[in-house]
Design a protein around this nucleic acid. Structure first.
Lengths: 362, 362
DNA sequence: CTGAAAGCGCTAACAT
DNA sequence: ATGTTAGCGCTTTCAG
């Protein structure tokens, strides 16, 4: 920067101004400085800026570790053959489809961060020990102006610690009485609306529910909405069987296969996420059971694949991109004004009625 | 940090040491410092560290802008109804499936960065003017120790400029004689091996090729491999029709429909990517044309969906995760030793033979 | 093994 | 509109 200043015949302060508030500088001077910047290939140091300005212009997104720290080989690529040819028979899907979910949030964060002139740093909370997690997080916290954390990727007490050095916003998961912003999605209302549709418009009286993991607050909310809808229509939800699919396509398929074998298929199978609903379809298809004529199947999430399956999947679409964007907006608001009251936002969802309950659509 | 030092009864230098090279400090002192850190909820400033140490511990990944700066609303969420219910008839897919590709690279980068103790900053090159792109990039460059850039997301001259302040590694795309590392994938060899399999093991003599955009260097390589295989078997590739699908599932479907209508289906349709191959299957299915009995269809990329389509898609799998990891390794190597010769790495691919050419697999 | 001191490259008053 | 100057919070010699 000193070089640039010298080259342009101005002081470093002017260079700084040209780069941060160009309007405070005469156009001719500006031009000269920019010229020097270009000639000298000057790239301003983010660290120095961050230090001096007390804000880095970076926001952080902390995601739960989906991948189980896979093969940690240091792969010496040179040795391998350039092409390998092999047969690839079908295998159960291995990757948890859950990441599709987060990728959309990520896109939303990046998009909004960009709009607001911030950079985005991402960090995946890989298992390891609690301490290493804490170090990772605190390290991250030191580099950003605000941190968005996806539910269940880090313990609340650690977040609270970080929360008093920078704004933290908690995404999805359980709403708790913390000192940070909280953004969730209307899981309950979405599932209730969907279930009511099934009851009111399709005359379903005995839907089965296929749940996810026990510790999923999202799923708990969804089941709550399901139960509420039934109760509101005079149906006792506790009398209905609940199945367990762990949010996994494969597990759901197995569960559905059991149902088929036992001849215990209900009129409708309400799944706590799309992956499981797809798994159910996987089981139904070869058995020759028609959807929705013989059985209605519904999902939750609104993943892309559900819009292309056969039949196309009725589901509740979560605004994942908006989740990310809202997170960034919340952080930016708080960076601007650090002592705002913590706010709790619940984003709207959309029930998408498709073929798996409606049959062929126009 | 001064507080921590005071609290622990040591100098700031010692605090620094405990946090960066714990082994240089007596265990008891260390413990005292760590204690103070915890009590004071101290989070070290990344900016200050970066400035003093001359390295930020952050790597950057620059991706091409896939999303067309969608609705830039500032969405006041409060006003919306919590649930909307609506019918959702099938529509052509809108999102370019291409991002799936990059998400995998991103995962690879994040994984390897984490392993190497770096953070990862991501930045999407949203259209805009060339200057704004340059500003974005230079801004990013100032915040990281190294930058990985995915092909075609930024002009080479800008990258060169950045390249002399920090290491730049170029991913995929055309191999050029630049001053930075370059990591690609064996597009040519992969497509050649696949095509040879079709000729040698399935007796195909007149495959049609479905290309992507004209300006895709990846596609050019792939077509090159295709042509080489034919020539090597005494078939003249220029005598064979080439179709244009723009890497789009919808376009490919339309093209295939034309072919069907015209009764001009070849024995095999070799697609330059998986999305197009899936589009072809979309067209073939309702027409009652059997794959692979009536026509063989192949893709390229190895996206998840191809492993689950009906029939499952024969393809060439690109090591996207490895691409990301290799990029990070290259950057780290260069951060360690800045004046290494630029290296050019070509990652191996795998031809995955599945039902769309082999028929039912064990 | 620990402390003292000199910056790292910028921004933000404050002057002019 | 531009220059001067005092740090920002840390790492890193260099002594001890």
């Amino acid at each position: 920067m000193y070089d640039v200043a010298a080259h342009a015949g101005v002081s470093i302060a002017t260079v700084s101004r040209v780069l941060t508030r160009p309007d405070d500088v005469r156009a001719s001077t500006q031009e000269r400085v920019l010229q020097a910047v270009r000639e000298l290939r000057y790239v301003p140091s983010g660290s120095a800026r961050g230090l001096a300005a007390r804000r880095t212009g970076v926001l952080g997104l902390f995601l739960p570790g989906v991948d189980a720290v896979e093969d940690l080989s240091d792969a010496e690529v040179g040795e391998q053959r350039p092409v390998e040819v092999r047969r690839d028979p079908a295998k159960p899907d291995q990757r948890p489809g859950a990441n599709l979910y987060f990728e959309e949030v990520l896109r939303g964060c990046e998009l909004e961060a960009w709009r607001q002139g911030f950079s985005l740093m991402i960090c995946v909370g890989r298992g390891r020990s609690p301490e290493s997690l804490e170090i990772t997080l605190s390290d991250l916290a030191g580099k950003v102006d605000g941190l968005a954390v996806i539910a269940q990727s880090a313990p609340h007490d650690v977040l609270r610690r970080i929360g008093d050095s920078i704004p933290v916003v908690y995404l999805a998961g359980q709403r708790r009485d913390d000192d940070f912003d909280h953004i969730t999605v209307r899981n309950r209302e979405g599932m209730r609306a969907l279930t009511e549709h099934l009851i009111d418009d399709h005359g379903v009286r005995d839907p089965m529910y296929l749940t996810g993991p026990f510790d999923s607050p999202d799923d708990a909310e969804r089941y709550g909405g399901f139960a509420e809808a039934l109760e509101g229509r005079g149906i006792n939800p506790t009398a209905l069987p609940v199945l367990h699919g762990e949010f996994s396509r494969e597990r759901a398929r197995a569960v559905a296969e059991d149902l088929i074998a036992g001849g215990r298929l209900p009129r409708a199978l309400v799944c706590a996420n799309d992956q499981m609903a797809l798994g159910v379809l996987d089981a139904l298809r070869p058995a020759g059971i028609r959807v929705p004529e013989d059985i209605i199947v519904t999902g939750f999430d609104g993943i892309d694949e559900g819009a292309r399956s056969t039949p196309r999947l009725t589901t509740v679409m979560q605004p994942m991109l908006e989740l990310g964007r809202a997170a960034v907006r919340a952080m930016v608001a708080r960076v601007t004004d650090p002592d705002l009251e913590p706010v709790s936002t619940e984003l709207p969802v959309t029930v998408l009625l498709r073929e798996s309950c409606e049959g062929p659509l126009g």
